[in-house]
């Protein structure tokens, strides 16, 4: 990797250090709430966990990408020996990396509660992973819309569409027998539906990232 690209990634991490630490702390608080094991605590804790993650994801995409244009720091960064493609690569790596730092504890925490603490049956793992992957997919779409669209309008539209789609996706998952028939069981059943949906989510994430990078590399006017 180009040393300047690496410095740009590190710069973004330093700029958002407090934002990341605050969100991780909020996630652990939410996790602690779930650990209380009462039904209300589990529902409130899980919701808080998701809210923190989705909120942080939207903020991250906005502050790390869109703000660079809004606050006119983009010409400042582009005065460095870096090409628009290298800049876009640095933004993708830094922003995805920061979101993964928030998302992976969520996945690890959920699996720990199922596997380690036995708070939920193992049969719920496929559906849980599908639901947990949704914020990652949503974040990828919001981040790409910010990077490619470059405007507040694209940001708002992508945030609204993604955030309002979560409820709809949950509703369908709760209706599909391929999930509902097995999630009370003691064994995680990876049937073709579960594999296809989870695989589809990750395929969409990769496709969105590749398309974003492709569009960015084809831009003729960067500022």
């Amino acid at each position: 990797m180009n040393p300047v690209t690496r410095e740009l990634i590190l710069k973004d991490l330093r700029l958002h250090k407090s934002h990341l630490l605050f969100t991780i702390a909020a996630e652990f608080l939410a996790l602690a709430g779930v650990m209380l094991k009462t039904e209300t605590a589990v529902v409130v804790g899980t919701s808080c966990f998701f809210i923190a993650l989705v909120f942080a994801g939207c903020l991250l995409a906005g502050s790390n990408i869109l703000n660079e244009r809004k606050k006119q720091t983009l010409p400042f960064v582009m005065s460095l020996p870096v090409s628009p493609v290298q800049y876009s690569l640095a933004k993708l790596i830094a922003t995805v990396g920061m979101f993964l730092a928030l998302w992976l504890p969520l996945v690890a925490g959920a699996l720990w509660m199922i596997e380690g603490k036995g708070m939920f049956p193992h049969g719920i793992i496929p559906a849980a992973l599908i639901i947990l992957t949704m914020p990652l997919l949503g974040f990828t779409i919001v981040m790409s819309a910010n990077l490619v669209g470059e405007t507040e309008g694209w940001n708002m539209a992508s945030v609204l569409i993604c955030n309002s789609s979560y409820g709809l996706a949950w509703y369908f998952i709760l209706k599909v027998p391929a999930f509902t028939n097995y999630w009370g069981g003691s064994v995680a059943v990876w049937n073709s539906t579960a594999v296809s949906v989870l695989g589809g989510e990750f395929a969409l994430i990769v496709l969105t990232l590749v398309l974003t990078f492709y569009v960015q590399s084809r831009k003729r006017d960067f500022i």
Partner: peptide, 25 residues
């Protein structure tokens, strides 16, 4: 340019009226 911009920019100091450093830092 634009192909050689990375090599060229090592030796260019560019400042513009619409350029802002990071205000929180």
């Amino acid at each position: 340019m634009p192909q050689g911009q990375v090599a060229a920019k090592w030796d260019i100091g560019f400042a513009s009226e619409d350029m802002r450093p990071y205000e929180a830092m």
